[in-house]
């Protein structure tokens, strides 16, 4: 981010609001000031601080790929004060945005490789950004597999896109819901993501794996991926601790000496193994 004062936000307009489920929404945000739009550039994997002045700021990953310019998308679940205020916003409302912060996925290093995505719940958005980046340059990558699960059918995000991806025919999708979360019409997998992952192990030769999710999924999923043959430095994850500043100052997101906001949020399994279990 080039701004000198990293605490003064950009002003962004909600160009499109999509209700993914009763408490999950996706906003497409466009800059109010054209100069900001020109100056703003990001890479897939980075995050921003989205805020409603008067209520505060919340941290979400950028959910749209860096191959599509001119806007930023974010998807979030309503949980607290800030997300409730954000969710109350309507199209054309203006909110604040700071960022982008953190590092990004080294996508150029993945050219020619198979890529496996493992994710759950509201952690699809940070990976959707990567998946779409890959899909936008589909010919540069091998097989793309996505393991995605949620508590129930209602909580699956990007339902429309999941259907689009299924229809493409050039992706392997393993969509699952937790036992008890299925509907009578549900045709896909039933079971927790780590279980589905173990039962349908991805091929690990010439492949990288990307995992994101609630901390428990990351903690369980990474060893499973390692066991199925992925080298530790080819398993990527994106951590998310509580954050306030985004620039490695406020101290909330530390995992040992590491600041998730400035040293991360993207880490390899190898790096994660060197950290204390504080995520």
């Amino acid at each position: 981010m080039d701004k000198e004062n990293k605490y003064i936000p950009y002003r962004v307009r909600i160009a499109k609001k999509t209700q993914e489920s009763s408490n999950i929404q996706t906003y497409r945000l466009e800059f109010v000031d054209e100069k900001d739009a020109e100056n703003f550039s990001f890479r897939s994997g980075q995050f921003c601080e989205y805020g409603v002045p008067g209520e505060g700021e919340s941290t979400f990953c950028i959910a749209s790929p860096d191959t599509r310019k001119g806007y930023v998308e974010c998807t979030f679940r309503t949980t607290g004060r800030v997300t409730a205020a954000l969710a109350n916003c309507e199209e054309n409302d203006i909110i604040s945005l700071r960022g982008p912060f953190g590092n990004a996925f080294p996508i150029e290093q993945w050219y020619g490789k198979n890529v496996v995505f493992v994710t759950g719940g509201i952690a699809l958005p940070p990976l959707r950004c990567v998946i779409d980046t890959l899909l936008d340059q589909r010919e540069k990558f091998g097989e793309i597999s996505v393991y995605y699960g949620a508590k129930n059918v209602e909580e699956l995000t990007y339902k429309a896109e999941l259907e689009e991806w299924a229809a493409r025919g050039d992706m392997n999708l393993f969509i699952t819901v937790d036992p008890g979360g299925e509907t009578p019409e549900w045709k896909n997998f039933i079971g927790f993501v780590p279980t589905i992952l173990e039962q349908n192990p991805p091929k690990s030769d010439n492949a990288v794996a990307v995992i994101a999710g609630p901390p428990i999924l990351i903690k369980l999923g990474m060893p499973i991926l390692a066991k199925s043959g992925f080298p530790n430095d080819q398993i990527y994850t994106t951590l998310e601790n509580r954050m306030k500043c985004g620039v490695g100052k406020c101290g909330h997101c530390t995992v040992g000496k590491t600041y998730v906001c400035k040293d991360g949020p993207v880490f390899t399994y190898e790096e994660v193994l060197g950290m204390p279990l504080e995520y």
């Binding site: 002045p53 008067g54 306030k244 406020c250 101290g251």
Partner: peptide, 13 residues
């Protein structure tokens, strides 16, 4: 010690 919190005070206006 340098840890801090960021909080908004006031209304949405």
């Amino acid at each position: 010690c340098t840890c801090f919190d960021i909080q908004d005070e006031g209304s949405q206006e």
